[in-house]
Amino acid sequence: MRKIKELVIEKSLFTSALVTIAVTVGIILVLAVEAVRFFSEVSILDFFTDTQWTPLFTEKHFGILPLLSGTLLTSFIAIAVALPIGLSISIYLSEYAPRSFRKTVKPLLELLAAVPTVVYGFFALIVVTPFLQEIIPNLSGFNSLSAGIVMGIMIIPYVSSLSEDALHAVPQSLREASYGMGATKLQTAFKVAVPAASSGIIVSIILAISRAIGETMIVAIAAGQQPRLTLDPTVPIETITAYIVQVSLGDVQHGSIEYRTIFAAGITLFVLTFLLNTLSYRIRKKYHLKYE
């Protein structure tokens, strides 16, 4: 009796674990099935080379490039903000700051990542854009600049916390060896600690990029809904994620080509983040081996 009970429990636990596999399979199937239907109507070549994305207009173009460029542009701005600040914070906290300071500041910074993204969107649109318009007069009300900057602030803790963890794991004895030869803290940080923690730091950066690419609400609120192939951060653009939101808010018939565009856009997004996540997983595995 007891044996049967144990077995039943084990099997149900196992089933729960399998749910996670089902989720992945589900995501891939859903995206793939709808994308295949989409590509039966739109040529893949057009999808990747057409420079216009106008599925909701009468003259339809299905070129993903404008959405992709919008996604990459906002992500690039976000990383340009988060990377230097986040890395500096992690180095300061692990190499310079007193322990008590580090212990209070780290959770406070992590609060930045806990704020719902719709709140950041509000901030980008209502506060940051009007502020930037004082400096850049021809900045549009919707633009990738303020969306990107605010997104960068949001992902600071992704870079700083994970990098700090990696730096923290570097043995103190290596630092002492460096100090002992007359190196400053800065020299020790950049010549010894950062190289030793490099894989962990790279993982944190990749995860931050992946997070930026998948971010939705900030760009949907503050960056605009005009797909356009541009590197100009002052004009309205549209990201892949914002497009999916735009279509979802509208009244699009299930089974129509418009409906399928969000899955075609979705699979592009999924492949991008999947590649980044897999890369970071690989590096993390290697890095664990190095320290254990």
């Binding site: 043995p171 002492e176 007359g182 010894v192």
Partner: peptide, 18 residues
């Protein structure tokens, strides 16, 4: 830093840099 250049130190566990 100058002081430590003048006074070297060898530690308990070998700690070569990677």
């Amino acid at each position: 830093e100058v002081l430590r250049k003048e006074i070297g130190m060898v530690f308990q566990k070998p700690n070569p840099f990677p």
